[in-house]
Write a protein that binds this DNA or RNA. Sequence first.
DNA 1: GCTTGACTCTGTAGTCACTCAAGGGTTTCT
DNA 2: AGAAACCCTTGAGTGACTACAGAGTCAAGC
Lengths: 162, 162
Amino acid sequence: MKIGELARLAGTNVETIRYYERDGLLPVPARSEGNYRIYGEPHVQRLFFIRSCRGLDMTLDEIRVLLHFKESPQENCADVNRLLDRHIGHVAQRMQELQELERQLKDLRERCGEARDAAHCGILDGLSQAIVSGGKTASHVLGSHGHAANRRLAKGYQGNQG
Amino acid sequence: MKIGELARLAGTNVETIRYYERDGLLPVPARSEGNYRIYGEPHVQRLFFIRSCRGLDMTLDEIRVLLHFKESPQENCADVNRLLDRHIGHVAQRMQELQELERQLKDLRERCGEARDAAHCGILDGLSQAIVSGGKTASHVLGSHGHAANRRLAKGYQGNQG
DNA sequence: GCTTGACTCTGTAGTCACTCAAGGGTTTCT
DNA sequence: AGAAACCCTTGAGTGACTACAGAGTCAAGC
C-alpha cells in the first residue's frame, strides 16, 4: 500500500510517517517505479505499535527501547517493566504537580470574583506578589500547555487570546 | 544591577532573561559603558511577575495579555478572569487525561508481573494489539513529557535509557 | 602593567514530535 | 487530454527555552 493508505489505517498523517522513517522508527520501505513508498503488513504493525505507545505519552526514545525488545524476543523483559514503571511514575508525578497548580490557580481566581478595573484586580496583585514561590517542581514532564503542533490537534481550542 | 544578579534574584538563568527581552516580555534595558545590560527595580518586578505566571504554567502569550492589563490599570479586568478560568479549565482537562493514562498504563503493567523473556512479555503484546484505541484526547495541553529543555531541569531524572 | 578569572556580549543552533508549505512529479479518473 | 488526487523532497516553523563559540569587559591580586 502507499503512504496515504497506511496513514488512514493508523490514523496518522503522512508527514508523521515520513518523520518516523527519517528518525529510524520505521524501516525504509520499498519504492514503486514512480518512487512512491510501498508498505506491507509489518509496517502497519510497527506503526500501530508506535502510535499505541505515543497514545500512552511515551517518548520516541522510550518507544525505540520497546521496539528493540520486540525485535529481540530472547532478551529478558525486565527492562520493559522498568521502563513502564518509570513512565507510570512520571505520569503520577505530573498529576500531583497539576493538582497543586489547580489549587493555586483557584486560590488566585477567588481574589477577583467579579470584574472591576485592572488597577484593583486581585489576580494581578496576587501574581505580582509572586504568591507562587514553591520551588521549581518541573520534572521531566511538561506543563499544561503543549507546543503549537499539539495545540493544533485540539479542534476545540482556538488560541489564547480572547 | 547586571544581568547575572537579576538572574540570581529571580531564580532564572541569564539566557532566559535575554530571551524574554528578545521576545518583548522584558523592556530593553539601559546599557553600561561596556555594553552590559543594566536593570532596575521595575525590571525585577516584571521578571518576578513573568516567572510567577510561568510557575503556573501559563504560556508567554497569556502572560503578555496579563502584562498588558497591568500596564493599563483603567481597563476592566474581566478578561483577566476569563484568561484564568480558561487556564484552570486546561489544567483540569489535562488532569483527567493523565488519570485515564495512568489507568491504562497500570493495566498494561499488570500484564507482566515478573521478568521473563520478551517473546512472552504481556506488555509488548498489549502494545502490539493497540489496546489503547481511545480517540485522540490530546487537547492543547501536552503529554507527560517535556522537551529536552525541561527535562534538563529535572535533576533527579537521567534520560530514558536504562 | 599584567594576568587570572568571573562575568558579559552577540549570534547561531539544538531540543521534541511533529506540522506546513513550496514546487515539483505520478497516478487515476473522467 | 486534462483535472484531481496523490506522492516526492527540502526546508522552515512551533514553545520556551538551553547551550555553545568566540569575543569583549571588569575587578582583584601580583
